[in-house]
Design a protein around this nucleic acid. Structure first.
Length: 627
RNA sequence: GGGGCGGUAGUUCAGCUGGAUAGAAUACUGCACUGUCACUGCAGUGGUCGCGGGUUCGAAUCCCGUCCGCCCCGCCA
């Protein structure tokens, strides 16, 4: 028994028993002969007493403690700690992983720490109590949604992540296809079309906890990726969908302890909402309810199907070829009594759609609609927006075809999970509810994406960059140096064009600078030859070492093939995937300085480290390429 | 694409109307301590003041440029 790890929450109930605990050092208080460790695991914190400790222990280290659970002496009971009535008297202590000095504090709520630091060290940030609670709450919420949906006989079905881009709406994130060079997949903005196709596929009730991805500029509360509870049902009315969704939402939020303002969500007309609140995203809570973090859900219904294009909005002008665009979703079904207008394209501003939004505490929490399952109706929607026959075919031809082969009436909704979690946790940023969110600049947590890819990979994908970022080659050199674990110094200076100029601004001599000359081989392909910047290259000598005739590449060819200007080519053949020869001078030198992809940056390092990192052809260590 | 704000010990910040050896809290290191619980006491380490250029006898402080970050508008069916 005592060989098995016990959670703190269970251990504290076993007074008198011997237990094995494993967890993190919350705090360590050393009193010489006796010391105290507040040990933390997923279930809680408990004080462990260690007598005669010799081990080095730091905050946030991972330790194993075997000891006996004891009632604390009356005078040392800690009322502020849930487990403060007991403590574990350690008989053995093992450090499983010693933590070094922490880059960010784990104690506290973390609000005052730089977001960039929090995300870079997200694995530390997530240890804090506040985030542990949110992550657990999110898991529980989604679990409850699943439970309820399975009760209703929904099927959980996955739809592709690599799919076809939709031309309207947000910008697509695209993924190059290696097997089809020059062609691209798009990451889904939502599973909208697939889920409707699943209805045509007779799945009747579908749901998915779906990741949606949109390449639009970021905000504090908007990342590229977000998560939706996406569902769709066949043979249903608007009221049917709303009833099921309301049940699922209520069950899920209650399972994480939320209080609802209304047991039955109010249903409000779009027009009334606009009149009453000036917005279709209104907050029904009183001041008191706001303080208590009560959830005030409401439905908004009877939205107009179309709106006039905002002339100020260039994208909408382009989009709405006729001057009309849909307000929510082009796949919606118009109200029965407006169906005739819709098919004929009359009274367009008066056409209402079976669309419903779920709002919560002033935020849009979800939106859905009964869909058009008759191809005539869907086609009419696009005709109203002014799409040509050809545009329609290109955009939704596959949907029209599917709807002509036995499509049931259907409808559904998508609920934003990130936003719901944010509201439930009482947070003001979506990122607090996401385990690994992005920074505002689109950088990923912990890992440093996006990052450049090799020329080879681009070639394989059939992609040629119109203009490589000024920094790309410089960054690639840096990552080679970092990978080789060598030290180097980056010197910033004004832009230079020649080696003489470079040597002058750096205050270094020209013979310290390996000048990278790019040459073409007779058999095709290129080689790089590095000689001191104050010397010229002896083509004959190169030919002897390479073993075939070579000639100088023109500046245009260099820039075209390597993406770097002459004069800024770094002495790193492998950055460009070409063989490199280094004149024997450099195999003896102490230090080297060179431009690396940028004319305003130089890198200074040991010559031996350059050889280690750049891996020139070993045969060149004895070669003299100078003239 | 446009606008606003910021960048100083590991972290959070002060200093910024030019005149230091650049501070505080916390973290970290060492010593002392058998009852603490944010332990305490003593001693200590730690800085290219984002980077580059300029003005000046003198720049963390003023000017120009640049990079990075945060927020907002546009955009997000």
């Amino acid at each position: 028994m005592e060989n098995e790890r016990v959670l703190i929450l269970d251990a504290v109930k076993q007074v008198g028993k011997k237990v094995k605990l494993q967890g993190w050092v919350n705090t360590f208080r050393d009193h010489g002969k006796v010391s105290f460790i507040d040990l933390r695991d997923t279930s809680g914190v408990v004080q462990c007493v260690v007598v005669g400790n010799k081990e080095k222990i730091t905050d946030e280290s991972v330790v194993e403690i075997i000891g006996t659970v004891k009632e604390r002496p009356k005078e040392s009971v800690n009322k502020d700690l849930p487990t403060g009535g007991v403590e574990v008297e350690a008989e053995s202590l093992k450090v499983l992983n010693l933590a070094l000095e922490l880059p960010i504090p784990v104690q506290g709520d973390g609000y005052d720490i730089n977001e960039e630091m929090r995300l870079k060290y997200r694995y530390l940030d997530l240890r804090r109590e506040r985030l542990q609670k949110i992550v657990k709450m999110r898991s529980k919420l989604v679990q409850a949604m699943r439970e309820k949906l399975f009760e209703y006989d929904f099927l959980e079905i996955e739809t592709p992540m690599l799919t076809k881009g939709t031309s309207e709406g947000a910008r697509n994130f695209i993924v190059p296809s290696r097997l089809n060079p020059g062609k691209f997949y798009a990451l889904p903005q939502s599973p909208q079309q697939y889920k409707q196709i699943l209805m045509v596929a007779a799945m009747e009730k579908y749901f998915q906890v779906a990741r949606c991805i949109r390449d639009e500029d970021l905000r504090s509360d908007r990342g590229f990726e977000f998560t939706q509870l996406d569902l769709e049902m066949s043979f249903v009315s608007q009221e049917d969908v709303m009833r099921v969704v309301e049940d699922v939402v209520k069950y899920a939020v209650k399972s994480v302890g939320a209080n609802l303002k209304d047991e039955k969500f109010p249903v409000i007309n779009y027009e009334d909402a606009m009149k009453e609140y000036g917005s279709d995203k209104f907050d029904l809570r009183t001041e008191k309810e706001k303080k208590e973090n009560v959830l005030a859900f409401a439905w908004v219904v009877n939205f107009p199907f179309f709106k006039k294009v905002d002339k100020e909005d260039a994208a909408e002008v382009e989009e709405g070829r006729s001057g009309w665009v849909f307000t929510h979703n082009p796949f919606s079904q118009p109200h029965e009594e407006h169906l005739d207008w819709h098919l004929k394209g009359e009274h367009i501003p008066e056409i209402k759609a079976y669309q419903y939004d779920l709002v919560c505490n002033g935020l849009e929490s979800g939106g859905g609609s009964i869909r058009a399952h008759d191809p005539k109706v869907l086609r009419a929607t696009y005709e109203i927006m002014g799409y040509s026959e050809q545009d329609i075919e290109e955009n939704i031809g596959h949907m029209l075809e599917a709807f002509s082969l036995g499509a049931p009436p259907h409808g559904g909704i998508a609920l934003g999970i990130d936003r719901l979690i944010m509201i439930l946790a009482g947070e003001s940023s979506l990122k607090e509810g996401i385990a690994f969110p992005m920074t505002g600049a689109g950088k990923t947590s912990v890992m440093d994406a996006p990052s450049p890819v090799s020329k080879d990979l681009l070639k394989e994908l059939g992609i040629k960059l119109v203009k490589e970022s000024v920094d790309a080659v410089f960054q690639r050199v840096k990552s080679i140096l970092d990978a080789a674990e060598v030290r180097y110094e980056v010197i910033e200076h004004k832009e230079v064009k020649t080696s003489e100029e470079a040597a002058r601004v750096r205050g270094t001599s020209m013979d310290m600078a390996p000048k990278a000359m790019v040459m073409k081989k007779k058999s095709g392909g290129m080689v790089m030859v590095c000689v001191p910047a104050d010397r010229k290259v002896n083509i004959k000598a190169v030919k002897d070492v390479v073993g075939e005739p070579v000639e100088m590449a023109s500046p245009e060819e260099v820039e075209d093939k390597l993406g770097v200007k002459v004069g800024a080519v770094p002495p790193f053949g492998k950055v460009f995937g070409i063989e490199m020869y280094l004149d024997r001078e450099f195999w003896k030198k102490d230090e080297v300085v060179f431009n690396a992809g940028r004319r305003d940056r130089s890198i200074k390092m040991k010559a031996s480290d350059l050889i280690k990192a750049a891996e020139p052809n070993p045969a060149s260590s004895e070669a003299d390429f100078k003239k």
